[in-house]
Computed example of a mutant assay.
Amino acid sequence: MKRVLLIAIAALGLIGSPVFAQEPPPAPDRPLPDAAQEARAQALFDGIRCVVCQHEAIADSPAVIAADMRQLVREQVAAGRTDAQIEQDLVRRYGDFVLFQPPVRLGTWLLWFGPVALMAAVLALLLLRSRGRRAEAAPLTAEEEARLADIVAGDGLRPDPDAKPSDH
């Protein structure tokens, strides 16, 4: 009986453990007291990608790291740093991926032009394959032409038993 009770307690502990393993909710955002600085920070939030969600801006992300990134941006805006300096600092910390519009340079050429190059390559391949398939049909032999003439004339056709009088 004790063994069954211990197994039941262990199972309940395993079932409840994911609830305890969740990350705590982020602290509520504290906007900057200066409305102009807060508006500038909000504009920056829309261009910065959450490194956890990866498809959301930090303005929309509920992740704790997004809240930390929002706070970092606010601190740098309050410190008087320019937008470019703030973005450079974030790129230094997280890489080019953190920006929704990463800069065009040698390391990001594939990111910027890769999809267009891939589509152009697929289009070129399809065009080349469609040109290669155009094969001319061999001309009919005299025997085949005679058979075709018989078929068209209707001599070798048997009537369709399901045909209505209007189909004849």
Rank of each mutant, 00 (worst) to 15 (best):
T108F: 07
L140Q: 10
E145H: 02
W109Q: 11
L106W: 10
D150R: 10
G132I: 03
R105G: 14
L128H: 08
A149F: 01
L106V: 08
S130F: 06
E143T: 05
M119H: 02
L148D: 10
D155G: 07
R131S: 01
T141Q: 07
R105A: 13
E144R: 11
S130A: 13
A149D: 13
G156D: 14
G156I: 15
E144T: 03
A121W: 07
L110Y: 05
E136W: 03
G107M: 02
A149V: 03
L126N: 09
L128S: 05
A138D: 04
L125F: 08
L126H: 06
T141C: 08
R147T: 10
D160R: 12
F113G: 01
F113H: 02
P103A: 13
V122P: 02
A120H: 00
A149P: 00
E136Y: 04
W112F: 05
E136I: 14
A138E: 09
P103R: 12
A135N: 09
D155K: 15
A153W: 13
L127A: 13
L125E: 01
W112E: 02
L128F: 15
V116P: 01
Q101F: 13
A142K: 03
P159I: 01
T108L: 05
A142S: 05
A149E: 14
P102K: 03
R147Q: 05
W112Y: 09
R131L: 07
L127T: 10
A120L: 11
W112S: 02
V116E: 05
A142M: 04
G107A: 15
P103M: 09
R133K: 14
P139M: 12
V152C: 08
L111S: 12
L110C: 10
A124T: 15
L125K: 01
L127N: 01
L157A: 14
P103W: 06
E144V: 02
L106T: 11
S130W: 07
P139A: 15
W112K: 02
A137C: 05
E144A: 06
S130C: 09
L148Q: 11
L118P: 02
L111W: 13
Q101P: 00
E144K: 09
T141D: 09
A117T: 06
L106S: 11
V104R: 11
M119T: 07
L111V: 12
E143W: 05
A137I: 12
A120W: 02
P103T: 10
L128K: 06
E144L: 03
D160N: 13
W109D: 03
E144H: 03
G107T: 13
G107Q: 10
R131Q: 05
T108M: 06
A138V: 09
A137N: 10
A138C: 02
E143I: 03
T108E: 10
W109C: 13
R131T: 00
A146H: 06
G107Y: 00
R105D: 15
V152Y: 15
A120C: 04
G114R: 01
L148I: 13
R131Y: 04
A137M: 14
D160T: 07
P102M: 04
W109E: 08
R129V: 08
